[in-house]
Design a protein around this nucleic acid. Structure first.
Lengths: 300, 300
DNA sequence: CTCCTTTATACTCGAAATGAGTATATGACG
DNA sequence: CGTCATATACTCATTTCGAGTATAAAGGAG
C-alpha cells in the first residue's frame, strides 16, 4: 500500500447571496478562490476548513461539503514536476453586511459566467458563444457529431431545453474550444472574467453542485437571514439557478414540504401588501428524506 | 499559496452485479479495497485509475467517478505523524465470468452490510442493531434527543420509511455507537464483516452514492450485459438498492424514459413465456437531462 | 392433447403532483 | 377615494404515480 508524496492544498468555493446577486468569496481582487495549506486541517478537513474560513471572513460557514479533488498534471501552466492535489469545498455563508472593499472580496458569480444568468431572458453573449462552439465542432470531421450533440445538450439548442445544472459541462466545452482565456484561445467577447489557474473551473463545479442540490435538499436556507418573506426566498433560489420561477407554484412547493413556518410578523418593506415573515423549520433536516425515492418500490 | 506535503493514495470501490448479487472488488481475501499509489495517475486521476484497474482485474471500467477524499488524522489506528490523503473512486464493471478464486476477489457487498439488504424482508439483525443504537442514545442525556432522531431517520423507525440511500449515515451511527468492529466496541452480532482501516466506510460511501445515482442517471446499464431482459434489469436495480420493486411500474418507468430498445430476439431461459431482449440506447446520455428540473420554472 | 404452472407483457383506475393561470386581499401613495 | 403594487388564495386540466388486474406464451405433468 505505497503512497506517493504530493503537495496538498484546500480550495474553498464560498457562496452567499446579497439582494438578488449570488456571490463568491475571492482573493486578489477577484482573481482567485481562497485557498490554504493542507496543514490547517487539524483533525478533520471539514473542521479545519470551517475554522479557517470564519477567521478569514468573519462569517461562520453554515453548510460545507466536499466538492472535488483536482490533481491532474496539466491543471496549471506551470511545468514543474511537483504534483499538487487540491481538495475543494463548497460552503454556504449568510453574508451579513454589504461587502467592504477590504480583504474578503465578494464578487457576483455571473461576472465569471455571464452566460449562466437567464433571469432576464437569454444573455446576449449566448448567441455568439453557441455560434463559436458550432464552428469549432465543424473543424474536426471525426468528432463532429459527438461535439454537436454535446453542445446542443449543454446549451439547450435545437429543441433541447436549457438546463441550469450543466454549468460545468458548458464551461468545459468552452474551454476545449478555446473560448475562455484560461485555455489560451483568443475570442473572449462575453466569455466572462478569467481566474487564476483552474479556479474558474472549480467555481463552475461549485455552482453546478449548488444548483443541483437546492432541488432536493433544503440548503437555500443556509443563505437566508433568520426571517424572510416568501418572495425573498424565491429570489434567492432564482439567483442561484439563474432562472425565474413561477410564483404561485413556488409557494405551493415550499409549503407542501413543510419547510418553513410563520414567525407571526409581517414586513411592509416590500411595497404593496405587507408580506408575512417566515423562518426555516430546522427540524426538517432530521425528519424528512428529500431524496424522493423515484424507484417504484413494491410493498409486500 | 503554500501547500503542505502529504502522502497520497487512490482507493477504488469497484462494483459489479453477478446474478442477483452486488459485488465489490477486494484484495486480501476480502479484507480491503484495492488501492494504489498516487503516481499511477499519469495525466489525470481518472485515466490513470482506469488503466490500473483494467490491468488488475482484466475488466475495463465502464463508469468511473470520484467518490470522496479522506484525510482525517484519526482515520487509522496508526499514530504516525504522516498525513495520508486517500482519493476514492467509484467504478462500475461488467463482470464477465464467474469470479475465479484468484487475485481479484469479488465479494458480495451485503457480506459487509447485512442490514442493508431488504429484498427478502427486514434483515434479522436489524432489530438487534436498532435496539443497541437506542440504548446507546439513552446513555448521554445531552445528546439523547438528537441521537434518537438520527437513528429513527436513518433506520426508518417510528413511522419513518426505510430509505435505501442512507447507507453511510447508518454505518456512521453504528460506528459511533461502537457496534462495528472497526470502532473498537464489542457487540458484533450481525454487524457484518469488518475491513482494513476505514475501507468499510469508503465502501458504504460508494454504495450510498450508487444507490442515489441509479435514480437519476442511467448508470445501471454499465453493469448489464449487452442484451438483457426487463426482469434482469429489474433484478440488478433491486440488488443495488436492496429492495424489491413493483414490476409493472418498473417497466413503465423504463420505457417512458426511452432508455432501451428491443434487439428483436427473445430468450426462454427464464422459464415461462419467453422474454424479449433489450439493449441500452447509448444515445440517451447525450439527449436527455435526467435531472428533472423540479423547480417550478416560469416561461415568460 | 389438455391443463397447470410460470414468467412476460398489457391494461386500468383512482390519487397525487404539476404546470399554468385567475381572483382576491391589503398595504402605500397621490 | 381610487389606483398601483405586492401578497396570498384558488382553480383546473394534464401528467405522473401507486397499486392492482387481465391476458399471452412458453414448458411440463398427467
Amino acid at each position: 500500500m505505497s503512497a506517493g508524496l504530493a503537495h496538498a492544498e484546500l480550495i474553498a468555493v464560498l457562496a452567499a447571496v446579497t439582494g438578488d446577486e449570488p456571490r463568491v468569496m475571492t482573493i486578489r481582487s477577484g482573481d482567485a478562490l481562497p485557498s490554504g495549506p493542507f496543514e490547517l486541517a487539524h483533525r478533520s478537513l471539514q473542521a479545519g476548513l470551517r475554522e479557517w474560513v470564519s477567521d478569514q471572513t468573519g462569517h461562520p460557514v453554515g453548510y460545507l461539503e466536499q466538492l472535488y479533488t483536482f490533481a491532474d498534471r496539466d491543471r496549471t501552466q506551470d511545468e514543474s514536476d511537483s504534483r499538487t492535489i487540491s481538495i475543494s469545498y463548497l460552503g454556504l455563508v449568510r453574508e451579513q453586511a454589504a461587502p467592504g472593499a477590504g480583504k474578503p472580496g465578494w464578487h457576483g458569480w455571473y461576472e465569471y459566467f455571464p452566460w449562466e444568468d437567464h433571469r432576464r431572458g437569454e444573455p446576449e453573449a449566448l448567441r455568439a458563444i453557441a455560434d463559436h462552439l458550432q464552428r469549432w465542432a465543424e473543424r474536426e470531421a471525426s468528432r463532429r457529431d459527438h461535439r454537436r450533440r454535446r453542445i446542443e445538450f449543454a446549451f439547450g439548442l435545437n429543441g433541447a431545453a436549457w438546463n441550469e445544472d450543466l454549468t460545468l459541462q458548458r464551461y468545459e466545452l468552452m474551454f476545449e474550444a478555446g473560448l475562455v482565456f484560461e485555455s489560451g484561445g483568443e475570442e473572449f467577447v462575453g466569455t466572462g472574467r478569467p481566474m487564476f489557474a483552474d479556479h474558474r473551473r472549480i467555481l463552475a463545479t461549485g455552482i453546478a453542485r449548488l444548483r443541483a442540490k437546492i432541488k432536493y435538499r433544503p440548503v437555500v436556507f443556509e443563505l437566508m437571514p433568520e426571517s424572510f418573506t416568501l418572495l425573498q426566498l424565491q429570489r434567492t433560489v432564482e439567483a442561484l439557478a439563474g432562472l425565474t420561477l413561477h410564483k404561485p407554484n413556488f409557494r405551493r412547493l415550499i409549503d407542501s414540504h413543510d419547510l418553513i413556518e410563520e414567525t407571526g410578523d409581517v414586513t411592509s418593506e416590500t411595497g404593496g401588501r405587507p408580506a408575512k415573515l417566515f423562518r426555516y423549520r430546522h427540524a426538517v433536516l432530521e425528519e424528512r428524506a428529500f431524496s424522493g425515492s423515484k424507484l417504484p418500490i413494491s410493498r409486500n
